[in-house]
Nucleic acid binder design. Structure first.
Lengths: 195, 195, 195, 195
DNA sequence: CATGAATGAGGATTCATTCAT
DNA sequence: CATGAATGAATCCTCATTCAT
């Protein structure tokens, strides 16, 4: 339904600008060019609108990441690609990125009550790359895909947040390769403890 | 002032449980065992209470980290110690950790308007360790302390959040060493690209 | 807008009965038969409601006075007409009168911050009559229209207040002519100081 | 009791500055240099403090007026003296004047519930002068002392208010004589209606 | 007598949601 | 389907008053 999408688009824009607590149904309605009541023809209530909005956003992010990863085969390259694509998306679609980095955390609902299937899918994407690397013997056998995946998301997300909050936005190209280097090769000159 | 501390303690507890948006002055007053009006004898308004609370929390975290780092000299060990101490603190004082991982991000004020000196200090702690390592030749010369520091905070913070949100809480001991290994040695078996 | 007028009418009634300090938004809403929140659809806040209410009242009073003065030409008669019309209005619309005599003075805002254009217009009406009389040689050349005008308002207003506060309300017809006589002819039998 | 007077003096000063609605017990306590609770050792509550304060003020005004009138014998001169003394007092003790012109009217209590014996005395002072003049044949026999007295108070009070609210304060000497001339001789050149 | 910390009732205002048109 | 006026529960904050010290 076109009208529903208009509302969602408007909601994304407003949320990205105003944050969770300061976004009123009225604001979204105005931005979408509809009456307040119209929102309730398409969404049961504010929470449902938020959930649908988040799912829309995550679907988009997952689509972008999957498409980018399609042509890459090597685990290391996949990881680089993943990090690069996520941060590139932040630059290209800051509103989308803002929803994930900022808005998502501002709602207690998303953190606790809502079963976040799509975020789990996002994590799985990362975990699969890591597991693949371990299985292929490219990554250390001790690498824990669950923990590492989560840590990587945290790192990327925090860098995204920092970028979104900063006044003058330098390119995230460099940032993504710095993180990739750290993650793949480690900080140490030589292996800390030669296994 | 003892009463002020009682209120802050109560506020930490309530915020950790209910989150930012759902915490009412009334809740804090009840938890502290005082009347609503009493809150305003010690804090100008809700926002100031929140700022003071956050500063209290960050001071505590900074204190814990600095104390732990005191006796460590080597950069690698410092980094391990940092990660371990932060995650250990999460286990020991989940309410404190919750303020940082959850509540902090729920307030637009903290993300945008509030000049977050203490968080900058936290980051500086990390950055100094990294810079030290680079200067000592222990870490790669290409390591960017700013980006890397922020990424590390993001990683640790996300793992803390995941732990706080999980039903059954496994030890974070293992988690901290997994992250430390990744960060120091990288995921790859051999250096990805021999420089 | 009809609803706005209903609210203003209700507000006048409540203010006249309860006075400035004891009038709550809730009271006005109840008197108008609307919900509390509805008030805020038509007025930004309580202060704005009060200002709009006062302007409504003053417009009405000015209208009544101007209409009554229309057909009078002689300065003395104009003055008599002015005094009579004002006090007649007090009898006919005590609520309106109460706003001017009582409520207006109860708000520091009206006395100090608010630029009271309409009250200035009221005073000008009086001053113009006095100036006209001086110019026509009907009134003493020494008459100061500014001071005298203000004094006359004070006299009328105080008599209105006394009437409003009194239990048994005698006619103000007599009162108005007593004042007019004093003002026009003076209290003295013969001129005090034959100029 | 000295302490009580200190509080009253402080209260007069604060009320004159801040007006009725904005004067808090706290403000008075601070101005008097005592603790909030101390106020309640000398006054049952805020209303009683206000009543006592008003009585203090009126006693002072009555004293001043009576003293000034002591040596005057002729009704016309008495009236001139009354007006002059009242307005002179406004210039000399604006805080006192402010209580009468502004603060008194801001409290519904004083206007309605409180039996204002001292204000009645003030009015009687005026009425007696007028009655005396009528009895002595100096004033018209038609002069109504009740109405005229009230009107005179209104005139003087309004002029006092205007002066108190004005930025640059011109002398009230002139004002008092303008009013006296009007009241005694009337505005008209010749008697309006030759009796 | 004096204090001032504590109280808690009370009031202005906001905003998600409804429903008559 | 769409509207937007109306609702009223919910919450922050103030301040007169009390009372233990």
């Amino acid at each position: 339904m076109a009208r529903q999408d208009e509302i969602l688009r408007a909601a994304i824009s407003v949320l990205a600008k105003k944050g969770f607590q300061h976004t009123k149904i009225r604001d979204i309605a105005k931005a979408a060019g509809v009456a307040d009541g119209t929102i309730y023809l398409y969404f049961k209530n504010k929470d449902e609108l938020l959930v649908r909005l988040f799912e829309e956003v995550m679907q988009r992010v997952l689509g972008i990441l999957r498409k980018a990863l399609e042509k890459v085969t090597e685990p290391e390259e996949k990881l680089r690609c993943f990090l690069h694509t996520h941060l590139h998306m932040v630059e290209e679609e800051p509103e989308i990125a803002s929803i994930i980095s900022v808005v998502l955390r501002q709602s207690t609902t998303f953190l606790t009550e809502y079963e976040n299937t799509l975020f789990v899918e996002y994590l799985r994407l990362l975990q699969d790359i890591l597991q693949e690397g371990v299985d292929a013997g490219v990554f250390h056998s001790g690498v824990d895909p669950i923990i590492t995946g989560r840590a990587l998301f945290g790192a990327v997300d925090e860098l995204a947040l920092a970028w979104l909050m900063s006044r003058q936005k330098s390119s995230l190209e460099h940032t993504s390769s710095v993180v990739a280097d750290m993650v793949l090769n480690g900080l140490c000159q030589s292996l800390e403890r030669p296994a």
